[in-house]
Lab assay of single mutants.
Amino acid sequence: KNAAQIVDEALNQGITLFVADNRLQYETSRDNIPEELLNEWKYYRQDLIDFLQQLD
């Protein structure tokens, strides 16, 4: 998997990933985040941060 796929997957589930103060953050109206997504975000944290910062 790559960062773009993970960001896309999150968006499809109503979750927006973004970077604030060099930390990976998310916004969602969901009550909870599936644990497998959280684990994936932790595992790919630096890739996601790098990818999202390139988009800014």
Rank of each mutant, 00 (worst) to 15 (best):
E35D: 10
L55E: 09
E40F: 05
D47V: 14
S29V: 08
Y43D: 10
E27S: 13
Q25I: 08
E35T: 10
I49H: 03
V19D: 01
L48Y: 00
Q46I: 08
D21R: 04
D8A: 15
L55I: 12
D50T: 10
Q5N: 06
N32M: 12
E9Y: 08
Q25N: 08
I15C: 05
N12E: 15
N32S: 14
E9G: 03
N22A: 08
Q25H: 13
D31E: 12
Y44K: 04
Y26A: 05
D8V: 13
I49Q: 04
Q25S: 08
L52I: 06
A3P: 13
A20G: 08
Q54D: 09
A3E: 02
I15K: 01
N32L: 09
Y44N: 05
F51D: 00
D50V: 10
A4H: 12
D31W: 06
Q5D: 08
P34D: 07
R30K: 08
Q5G: 05
D50F: 10
D8F: 14
Q5L: 10
Q5K: 08
A4E: 07
D31V: 11
S29Y: 11
V7P: 00
I49M: 09
Y44H: 08
K1N: 04
K1Y: 04
E9P: 00
E36W: 09
K42G: 09
I6S: 01
L24H: 01
W41D: 00
P34A: 06
D50N: 12
R45A: 15
Q54I: 11
A10L: 03
D31S: 11
E35Q: 12
A3F: 03
A20I: 14
D50L: 11
G14I: 02
D56S: 13
E36H: 11
R23Q: 15
I33L: 08
V7K: 02
D47Y: 08
N32K: 12
Q46N: 09
R30S: 08
D21N: 09
E40P: 01
I49L: 08
S29W: 11
K42N: 15
Y26Q: 02
L52S: 01
L52K: 00
T16I: 15
L38Q: 06
A10D: 00
D31H: 10
L38T: 06
L37D: 01
R23L: 14
L52A: 01
E36P: 06
A10W: 04
A20E: 14
D56M: 13
D21A: 06
A3L: 06
L38W: 07
G14A: 04
D31C: 11
F18E: 03
A10H: 02
Y44A: 05
G14H: 06
Q25K: 09
L11Q: 07
L38G: 03
I15W: 03
L37E: 01
D47N: 10
N12Y: 10
A10T: 02
L11A: 11
Y26F: 09
I15M: 02
A20P: 02
L17S: 02
D47W: 06
A4M: 09
K42W: 14
T28P: 12
